[in-house]
Design a protein around this nucleic acid. Structure first.
Lengths: 184, 184
DNA sequence: CGCCAATGCTGCGAAATCCGCAGGCCTCCG
DNA sequence: CGGAGGCCTGCGGATTTCGCAGCATTGGCG
């Protein structure tokens, strides 16, 4: 994702160091079944606990999964360091002042990845994915208002070399947004 | 990396309701459609801190935003209760065993919302949004493998009454995924 | 104007949690 | 056999969380 994994301990405000774990390359992962690092049932259970409440105490998690507090702490730290998991605050864009969202499908000529990289650098792009199908790229955009949205799509995205054409899907209503995979 | 997992803490997280007093916060809250959160600059700064590290201690946050520990704690609790924010673990689907993702555009005849509701009930649908444009709905799907994906798209989604046709965009590579709304 | 209720911040002990570290088991090789 | 590495437990001490009482500000109202 290009962003960083946050470390959890700290107690020091400027301790925002991040751990670099490859993470960018394993999305290539086609490896049948063997790709997953060390995710046993216990780690999965820990993740599940933290999906319910990212601030749940280690001791409570340990009781739920059958491990000591220290063991849970070590596992969580490892999952964070490895980039398998992040513990973050997620918000509803509408409630924090972004009133226009859109999905944009993009047709590319030439190198798709370079276009994707350019999009990745734009702060308004929350989500950039290379796809198979009639679009080469799909991008989710979060803007403050219509003017902002127009400017991003027409001036910025279409100005990227290699972008042949775009098609926009303005959000009318967000019906569902979860982050619960791994718990099914 | 990509993706994530989350889930709400306790009761309904989507409890988006507004506070009655239309407080005139100088930030970007703004009402307009009813959901006006009273988000001032300080709450935004708190959210920003928690987007970097969901487990950051209240005292550290307070030092960063200029508030006491107790005040930060009260604000965070309120943001959680109001459903403005969630603190959760997010994971990379690939590392948790989901190897196929796709965005599906859907053409609907008849009532769009009822189709959307049906999709919302499917656990494989992580993201359901009603859009303006050539698709009426866009859905993100997370599956374990190709068979699973095929079954979801061809058997389940197309079986929903009102679905006229679908177009799939299988993910080749996820380039970016952030949760930084409200921090720009 | 004064009063009252509501809101939001601070400060402060007590309780709970986090954190580092010292072992104790295992397993895996050389 | 011996040692290195991985993972767990247990344990104090430092830190953080939690609940509550005070205080200041704001807005409604007679």
């Amino acid at each position: 994702m290009h962003s960083e994994v946050v470390s959890s301990r700290s107690a020091d405000p400027r301790d925002s160091r991040e751990s670099r774990s490859g993470s960018r390359s394993e999305s290539r992962g086609e490896s049948r079944n063997g790709s997953s690092p060390n995710l046993d049932a216990v780690s999965l259970a820990i993740i599940e606990q933290l999906q319910e409440d990212g601030r749940r105490p280690y001791a409570a998690i340990g009781k739920a999964v059958g491990l000591s507090e220290a063991a849970v702490r070590q596992r969580v730290q490892k999952l964070l360091d490895q980039g398998v998991m992040q513990i973050v605050a997620v918000t509803d864009p509408l409630t924090v002042g972004f009133r226009r969202q859109a999905m944009v499908g993009i047709h590319v000529e030439g190198d798709v990845e370079s276009v994707a990289d350019a999009l990745t650098g734009m702060s308004e792009c929350e989500y950039v994915v290379m796809t198979a199908g009639s679009f080469d790229l799909m991008v989710e955009i979060v803007c403050e208002d219509d003017d902002h949205l127009l400017e991003v799509i027409n001036r910025r995205i279409r100005a990227i070399p290699g972008v042949r054409s775009t098609e926009s899907f303005v959000y009318l209503k967000l019906k569902k947004q979860t982050y619960m995979w791994g718990t099914r």
